[in-house]
Design a protein around this nucleic acid. Structure first.
Lengths: 100, 100
DNA sequence: ATAACGATTCGATAACTATCGAAATACATT
DNA sequence: AATGTATTTCGATAGTTATCGAATCGTTAT
């Protein structure tokens, strides 16, 4: 991954509300393999749990998608989000590699 | 680490030039144990290798220090930078933990 | 002492961003 | 059809930031 893309990803994670949003999405679908405790992440629930308005959430979600950190799927009137696990693992490794 | 602090760290890494600066500092001192290939990271050299002005570099270094990502040491008229390896490892783990 | 060099501070500017309220869109339910 | 709910778009605003040139400060070398 080149520096510019990495910076873009960090930028997407650099706002406290957006980072919390990302973490919430990640927590919902916790494993690569479906489990009993897995559940889908509806944006409505997030809006209730973070105290910022719906337009702002919408904006943050677009930023996360734009950085390729999450993907979304429309189901009826709801929006479902899930994280791009490969990308975040790549970023994690990029950071820990720096120290070797 | 709480979300706010994590967001602050990501913000510090969110500018391409600043991220490259950070990586260069990290590359200079590559291991926790001193080796033959280790060398100290002088800001002068960085200024030459990135093509942004000295005032901007100075600003970026302050941001990295402020996020606790690096520490600095003045030696004569030179400034030496080194990364806080524990912190970046912590961040790396925070990201990879999200997927379990 | 004075010049040269490394780094910082200052002031300015242009660009970006988080957030909001209001309005609009889309879907679902009655 | 009409209402309600979920989400998006729009326009505005206040705040932040990256970058620069000029000036300044410290240190070293002549």
């Amino acid at each position: 991954m080149d520096t510019k893309k990495a910076a873009k990803i960090f930028k997407a994670l650099s706002n406290p509300n957006r980072l919390e949003l990302y973490f919430k999405i990640a927590e919902m679908h916790e494993s690569s393999f479906p489990t009993d405790t897995d559940s889908e992440c509806f944006v409505t629930d997030i809006i209730r749990s973070l105290n910022i308005g719906a337009p702002t959430i919408s904006h943050h979600i677009k930023e996360l998608v734009n950085a390729d950190l999450i993907s979304t799927e429309k189901r009826g009137k709801f929006l479902i989000c899930k994280v791009n696990e490969e990308l975040i693992e790549e970023v994690s490794k990029l950071l820990s590699l720096q120290k070797q």
